[in-house]
Design a protein around this nucleic acid. Structure first.
Lengths: 113, 113
DNA sequence: TAAATACATAATAATATTCGCATGTGATTA
DNA sequence: TAATCACATGCGAATATTATTATGTATTTA
């Protein structure tokens, strides 16, 4: 059993526009740091910082190829997450009809709002 | 089309242990604030703050019942997210065999790490 | 109507995140 | 071997997040 806490930490790391973009690009295949520099339009140190954060959290890894570092997706949770991030939902969850038992258990049986 | 940016904002709001716990409890049914006080073991103002954050982001809503506020899940994205958060994965994504074309397109065809 | 209950808000302090800039390192090339 | 390329790291400033304490508001009860 993977502890839920660990997954929540991953979620926190992932929940950033730039890092989501990085992960989406990595689902398309391996990329090196300077590839991201081009596609993300942020500074090289910033790319490096995001990649380092993803790597230290076990989300991506890389292999070295000459002076390039080739990053790839490692964490199997990512593709599933990216998929539901883009999923369309038609409607909100319907509001409960009325008044389940809560703390007091003394609900009058009439919804007032 | 729901903008991805919006979903990422949601992700950021959700990525907190207490708020995940709140959402998990809400998948079980409606709860009022003091129910959370009992189950979460944090102060009442803190419960209120987390719930307010979830509400202002359209993730939950409530109806008023006397002096109780009955919170319920609203955002349909949540159950899917909670489900994959708890999903078990056996292995990492296999590392790519070698050397796709990146910026330089001059890969020597040999993986060095 | 005074007190109690259920919850929200404001203000603050501690901590974390994020990005910029400067600099450093290792590999390749001229 | 000096210069260049690809990338990482250190540091600092701005901003965001989080939880605590104190206080406020609306509803119900005594």
């Amino acid at each position: 059993m993977i502890p839920l806490e660990k997954r929540i930490d991953l979620l926190k790391v992932i929940a950033h526009p730039i890092r989501i973009k990085i992960l989406e690009e990595l689902t398309q295949g391996v990329k090196c740091v300077s590839d991201f520099e081009d596609s993300l339009d942020i500074s090289q140190p910033n790319v490096s910082q995001h990649l380092t954060l993803l790597r230290t959290n076990g989300i991506v890894d890389f292999f070295v190829d000459g002076r390039l570092k080739c990053y790839f997706l490692k964490e199997p949770f990512i593709p599933d997450l990216l998929e539901i991030l883009k999923k369309e939902y038609e409607e909100d969850i319907p509001a409960p009809a009325c008044c389940p038992v809560t703390k007091k258990g003394t609900y009058p049986g009439e919804r007032r709002r």
